[in-house]
């Protein structure tokens, strides 16, 4: 952690770890609620999706049969909240028979590049994610 955080005036790197399936438990939904509130604090925000957490980003979710609200469309709004770094672990996808094509098309508009539309999802290996995690100041695990 940087020494200049003492006065609280600098930006911290926040990582939200999403490890659980979107339904079955409430962790995924309540994690997203933290991310959306946290977006108002102007910190450097990243999300990671590992283990069953990768199911949170799959497209075509239909929860009609379980009587629970499908909250997956909310992920599409993250770009508007300047939440633009969604790391998805390749091994977790592979272990579950998923590929990047199974995931929602999530994008953000890059203000430093004439508002060009860019993908928010970054596929990373377990090793690469380890490096990303080591750079964080605050990790919240859900």
């Amino acid at each position: 952690m940087s020494e200049d955080m003492e006065d609280g005036g600098d930006i911290k790197k926040f990582m939200y770890m999403n490890r659980k399936a979107p339904y079955g438990t409430i962790y995924a939904l309540e994690a997203l609620e933290v991310v959306l509130i946290g977006a108002a604090f102007d910190q450097d925000v990243s999300l990671a999706f590992v283990d069953d957490g990768v199911f949170q980003l799959t497209k075509g979710q239909d929860t009609a049969g379980i009587g629970i609200k499908n909250f997956s469309p909310a992920f599409k709004a993250l770009g508007d909240y300047d939440v633009t770094k969604l790391y998805v672990e390749k091994e977790s996808l592979e272990e579950r028979g998923l590929t990047a094509d199974d995931l929602m098309d999530l994008v953000y508009e890059d203000e430093d590049d004439d508002w060009a539309e860019k993908p928010s999802i970054r596929l990373v290996s377990r090793d690469e994610l380890k490096t990303v995690l080591a750079e964080q100041d605050v990790i919240m695990s859900f």
Partner: peptide, 13 residues
């Protein structure tokens, strides 16, 4: 609110 959690993350070591 949840802002108190984020604030704790910012202020805590």
């Amino acid at each position: 609110g949840l802002g108190q959690l984020i604030e704790a993350g910012i202020q805590a070591d």
